[in-house]
Computed example of a mutant assay.
Amino acid sequence: MSSLYLDRKNLAVKLDGQALALYEDGVKRGTVPLHLLDRVVMRGNVQLESRVLGALSERNIGLLVLSGRNTEATAMLAARSHNDAARRLGQYRTSMDEALRVPLARWLVLVKVRAQQRLLREALAARADLRHPLSASLQTLNGIIGQLREDAFDVSLASLRGYEGAAAAAYFAGFVHLFPGSLNFAGRKKRPPPDPVNACLSLGYTLLHYDAVRACHTVGLDSMLGFYHDLSFGRESLACDLMEPLRPLMDRWVWQMFRERRLRAEHFSDDNGRCQMNKAGRQCFYAFYESHAGSARRLLRRYGHALAKRHLTAGGSDALVAKKR
């Protein structure tokens, strides 16, 4: 199964039997059999025949629509949800009990910080010239990991978010040095992304978030109701939870794309302070993501199944955390 990326102007998609027919400026350019697809990603002004939505839903094919200007998600067709509503009942119970949420939240933050630590260690091995900033970041992360591993009785969601924020600040203080100064990457900035690295991180996190939403639906969990991220109108908080430990993996891929010069300065332009990736750059990014995303999608499904089967039942919270340690 594969993904279909539709990122062209004046493109129309129609249903042609058991395939999607692609038209550009009214001329048929080809067909893609539905049985080969797992998801469709569209960006910009793509016209979609209404019958296509039914066909995608019937075959459990996901759909992600990205805005043309900032590549944020504007619409999603996730996946057919699991039929066991008891899983969602367990999830709702958990969401109302901080004593059940905290062990999972601690595990999530610990796994994420460890992943940040691994990336910086790999970077230090490859970039001895950056020993000072990377070692300083690693020292801070080591201290935070030590605090997270202590069996403190007063740990709370608020304190865990404080640890995560401190870890993120230390991590990006080292991570920024992995990119040449010509890219003007000074730290994580979302809206709008002011430089090529942030533009790539934003697009990558959007794609990863959609895969997390699909993982939630597949195992029968409510993607809007998280255990670490609180309720927020319009936000898939559980999907945000599941993807947090995988953010450093996306960071590594972005670093690799620039390090191997798959992405270069000519793939980007400035639009009144907003950095935008051009069509050639997006094609490179999509291809790289699809060639590497299998491992991330498997992890997301594994996390989702573990939550549904081991945690979201009475008395099952410690099992998941103990297993992941």
Rank of each mutant, 00 (worst) to 15 (best):
S2M: 10
L6V: 14
D7L: 06
D7T: 03
R8A: 12
N10R: 15
A12T: 09
V13H: 13
K14H: 15
D16M: 12
A19M: 11
A19P: 07
L22T: 08
G26W: 14
V27I: 15
V41N: 04
V46T: 15
V46E: 14
Q47W: 13
G54P: 04
A55F: 12
A55T: 12
N60C: 12
T71C: 09
E72H: 06
A75W: 11
M76T: 14
A78C: 05
R80K: 15
D97K: 08
E98C: 01
L104I: 04
W107E: 02
V109N: 08
Q116D: 02
R121T: 05
A123H: 10
L134D: 04
L138H: 08
N142S: 14
I144P: 10
G146S: 15
G146D: 15
D151R: 15
F153N: 07
V155H: 01
A158M: 09
A167I: 13
F175I: 07
V176T: 14
L178Q: 10
P180Q: 11
R188P: 11
K190Y: 12
P193G: 03
P194I: 02
D195G: 00
V197P: 09
L201F: 12
L203C: 11
L203K: 02
G204M: 01
G204T: 01
Y210V: 07
C216Y: 02
F227R: 03
Y228N: 06
L231Y: 13
S232H: 15
E236F: 03
S237Q: 04
A239Y: 08
D241I: 00
L242T: 03
L242I: 03
E244N: 08
E244G: 00
P245R: 01
L246W: 05
D251S: 08
R259P: 08
L263H: 03
E266F: 01
G273Y: 11
Q276A: 00
N278E: 09
A287C: 02
A287K: 10
F288S: 11
H292N: 14
S295W: 06
R297M: 02
H305Y: 07
A306E: 03
K309S: 08
G316R: 00
A322M: 00
